[in-house]
Design a protein around this nucleic acid. Structure first.
Lengths: 263, 263
DNA sequence: CGCTTCGTTGACGTCTATCAATTCATGTGG
DNA sequence: CCACATGAATTGATAGACGTCAACGAAGCG
């Protein structure tokens, strides 16, 4: 369909490589995925709640969110997806989504048929393993969000979300953790933090007054990272950076990794 | 180590079989896992937060919980594990836990070395696939908990937890969804619902007054299931019952399932 | 019998939601 | 260049849900 790999695929590959080593051939196989790119405006639903889908969504540019929808129409964002994230690798296993996916900012999204992904996982065990790790990271983030929503107040919740996205953007090579653009509205931030937009607004003002963050438009500057992380009780271990994976079981090498992680 | 398979392994196998078909040989391989059973009292930590582990925990009897711990010692339970649940299949991929695991009631737990599980996944692709599905179910439940904590009030949150555990116990063949023993304290329920024990107590009284639940000790009776599910906005789709898996991609059969799911 | 754990109750304080306006930024068309 | 529309950020006043603290009762257990 496309002779040159889309830059979104390169970002996705980089993300996989950040936790799993893949051979040249395996890397080429990922880059060779056939996909249908699409430019989407903000606040557009990519997957409706309850819909059965046959493709996964890869965010190439912008930011998207998975959400749970209540009867009264309120939404709870359960995950943010930045450039390079595959929104719903789960859908390969469970094609009928209990959730929805929607763009938050304007975005470029690649639609990849499930069959392409399953074929890939089948042909290359190392890729299947990388996919499994990706799903595990997703679960780890969700567990942390449960803790964040259940046991932290508004100030800590928002600080935690800001810390997480900063670190994730830095890991993805999109920005510095202390200076990045969080291209979502306060209302969307509220839907992620389990708060109202009004209260998010006041809490952000509090964080600014404390000197923990500065904002210019949707750009966020964090002067004192340690202080913000302290306020958020943020510990990046749950994001499973490479060192948290190292020292793992033999599966990594035996099931298809071509080379061990550098030490 | 043990000539006869432990009944906990049988429960675990049944759980896997509820979503993935396995051949006789594969089933025997699961039952042949070597494990160290241990009887543990209530409120005992099986895995401390931040600990690096080399084994997974399988709950054979009783109920355990994964939790996130705050600086001040408060805990947020992020997942319940009933008999037949493998607590931390994730730990195979990420052996340094960002979370902790603790018994809630008294329990019998089997400790299974990671190596056993990785060997199994390596030898039998269908088992690897079943593990992947298990991790996906876990993630789906976590996402629903985020929605429950972020956008529902105390009454709906507690009702939702009760509904979920009822359905899961019924699926596991442990009880009826309308009549089961929820062997945890109100304080533990509060740690899962993101509330205080006092407020849980009052909310439970409210649910009893409304006639939505009846309790005798820790046994719960649900007279009108529909009404409770309505109050909780509970839809079991997120638990990925077998029918949500059917109609999935070809991976199931191509990657090792011996027979298609009965229809 | 005393000890411990758990469930229950009351009074009070605080965090967050709700509702409604107002300001600000941006873009569009005349 | 201005009038206007639109979406987002901000502000104020008030209400409600939930937390906190403290005490008491019930049940199991050595």
């Amino acid at each position: 369909m496309h002779s040159l790999p889309h830059s979104g695929l390169q970002r996705f590959l980089d993300r996989l490589l950040s936790r799993t080593s893949l051979s040249y051939q395996e890397q080429q196989a990922v880059l060779g995925l056939h996909c249908r790119p699409e430019t989407v405006g903000p606040r557009q639903d990519l997957v409706a709640p309850g819909e059965t889908i046959s493709h996964a969504c890869l965010v190439a540019k912008g930011i998207a969110g998975r959400f749970d929808q209540m009867r009264n129409g309120q939404r709870q964002i359960t995950a943010f997806h930045i450039a390079g994230d595959m929104c719903d690798l789960h859908s390969v296993v469970a094609p009928t989504a209990a959730w929805g996916i929607s763009t938050l900012s304007g975005a470029t999204v690649l639609f990849i048929p499930h069959k392409q992904l399953t074929d890939l996982a089948q042909a290359y065990p190392a890729i299947a393993f990388a996919f499994w790790r990706d799903v595990t990271v997703d679960g780890s983030i969700l567990a942390k969000w449960v803790g964040n929503l259940g046991r932290q107040d508004a100030r800590a919740r928002i600080a935690h979300i800001i810390c997480e996205l900063g670190v994730r953007m830095e890991s993805a090579g999109l920005a510095l953790r202390t200076s990045f653009s969080l291209d979502i509205t306060q209302e969307q931030l509220a839907d992620a933090a389990g708060l109202t937009a009004v209260h998010v607004n006041r809490t952000l003002q509090g964080l600014r007054c404390e000197g923990l963050i500065e904002t210019r438009g949707r750009a966020i500057e964090i002067g004192d990272w340690e202080a913000l992380a302290e306020a958020a009780e943020f510990d990046p271990a749950y994001l499973l950076p490479r060192q948290a994976i190292r020292g793992g079981p033999a599966l990594a090498t035996t099931i298809g990794e071509q080379q061990t992680v550098a030490h």
